[in-house]
Design a protein around this nucleic acid. Structure first.
Length: 425
RNA sequence: GUGGGUGUAGCUCAGUUGGUUAGAGCGCCAGAUUGUGGCUCUGGAGGCCAUGGGUUCGAAUCCCAUCAUUCACCCCA
């Protein structure tokens, strides 16, 4: 197939026969956000490249090799957003949200862009729900965010996502840990892979995450960050766990969660599926108490998550969750002849004005073809308008499910259609 | 960036040891006597057999390359 008629790698069309699923989860997400006090923010698709370099982190894969970056005609370096947090943080600072009533709770529903090789559940353009909560340092904030996700998944009927939890400490205890880790690794340094040698200086913590067999074997008794976090961080984490348990939210500790973004602090978490392929992380999030300051704002605690919509839908599909399909059209108006054509156009407008979903023939087809079309549309009723109907004012209102027809006066059509929605035909 | 699988109609797929004009089902359009859908029947449209080379008298079929797609590694949502 030619390039001209082929969507770029990693992108896809969401067609009408699928879009109702998107509407459904989007609506559920909006609902729950409003219930938890979040307001929607819409941010640009692109930002200055420096924002992501700073806000996501220079050592991350996202910044090092996955960004869609280009120079605009004014010579500025621009990048398509690879995630939502950085843009929202920028907006928080730019719009002086520090002087809004605290905490500031925002949510978004966006497309994001990463140059990666595609596979199941991974695309170059994909979609995320996300929230960002600014100004609340207390463990209550962590727990509220997680409980919101818990409720969201429950409402969608999703049962089998595992919640994994970790704490990656604060800059202070992490620095101490990094020294400890480096001391552990120093004699083994030569046997680590090349990326890990690089990480050793820049971000040793991420070596823990390396999947290379050679590195893994060197790491078997490496110190785990969670065992070395400072007293404050530890107390914070204990509170989070305690509160989750009190709310009956089941979790497990995964000391391996490091998060790909540099500015995460303390609580990090994931909701993971084992039924949607090897890319099972449906939602990932955590606390980023250093990020706002790093981006030029006043020191402000923050916490949030990103939730992959494609993966969410994959998960629902893998569980056999049926999303309700949109209501079929109320009525199809078939037309024969010029006089009826005029009449039917006015009638259709009148019905539509009253909120009735009404389709009519605009192809000039035979009655038979029009009825076939009405059937494909799944219309609940059909009427045919010809000269005799226009003259007499009587039409046959045909129930397309039962096949029964009944003669009615055209002036009562609207009323009957409205009533039929309540089950009375 | 690295591996494996797959490329034939809008979709799902047949296509024999290489042998005339490449098929089916679904979908689309039209018809089966007057102005009525679903079931059935008939007909029609729709293919550079991914692309480019090669082998051969002859290639959808065999070989090579490229591209696309898909799964996986890595990483992440």
């Amino acid at each position: 197939m030619h390039m001209l008629t082929k969507a770029p790698k990693g992108t896809r069309d969401i067609l009408p026969d699928e879009i109702y699923k998107w509407y459904f989860v989007e609506e559920k997400f909006r609902q729950i956000c409003h219930q938890f006090g979040y307001h929607e923010i819409r941010i640009p698709v692109f930002e200055h490249t420096e924002l992501f370099q700073r806000g996501v982190g220079e050592t991350t894969d996202i910044v090092q090799k996955e960004m869609y970056t280009f120079d605009d005609k004014g010579g500025r370096s621009i990048t398509l957003r690879p995630e939502g947090t950085a843009g929202v943080v920028r907006s928080y600072i730019e719009n002086g949200m520090a002087s809004w009533p605290q905490p500031v709770k925002l949510f978004y529903d966006i497309a994001v862009y990463r140059y990666e090789n595609v596979q199941k559940g991974r695309y170059r353009e994909f979609h995320q729900f996300g929230v960002e909560l600014f100004g609340a340092a207390d463990p209550s904030a962590d727990v509220e965010v997680i409980s919101m996700l818990h409720l969201f998944f429950n409402r969608l009927g999703i049962k089998s996502l595992a919640l994994n939890l970790n704490s990656i400490g604060c800059p202070t205890c992490r620095a101490a840990y990094n020294e400890r880790l480096k001391a552990y690794l120093r004699p083994k340094l030569e046997r680590l892979c090349s990326t890990c040698k690089d990480r050793y200086e820049r971000n040793p913590m991420r070596i823990i995450d390396c999947k290379e067999e050679s590195c893994r074997s060197e790491l078997v008794d490496a110190p785990a960050l969670l065992d070395y976090i400072c007293e404050d961080c530890s107390r914070h984490f204990e509170k989070v766990k305690e509160k989750l348990s009190a709310m009956g939210i089941v979790y497990s500790i995964d000391k391996g969660i490091v998060r790909g973004l540099d500015y995460y602090t303390r609580t990090v978490f994931e909701f993971v599926s084992d039924t949607i392929g090897s890319q099972g992380t449906v939602c990932g999030g955590g606390r980023y108490d250093g990020l706002i300051e790093a981006c030029g704002g006043k020191p402000t605690p923050g916490i949030g998550f990103g939730l992959g919509i494609e993966r969410l839908l994959l998960q629902m599909d893998s569980q056999g969750i049926v999303i309700p399909q949109p209501d079929p059209p109320d009525v199809f108006i078939g037309v024969i002849g010029d006089r009826a054509e005029q009449f039917s156009e006015s009638l259709a407008l009148k019905l539509r004005t009253a909120g009735i979903t009404c389709h009519k023939d605009i192809m000039g087809r035979s009655v038979k073809a029009q009825m076939k079309y009405a059937n494909k549309l799944n219309a609940r009723f059909a009427v045919i308008l010809g000269d005799s109907e226009v003259e007499s004012g009587k039409v046959e209102l045909k129930n397309m499910v039962t096949g029964e027809g009944r003669d009615i006066h055209i002036d009562t059509l609207m009323d009957r259609l409205l009533k039929s929605r309540q089950g009375a035909v």
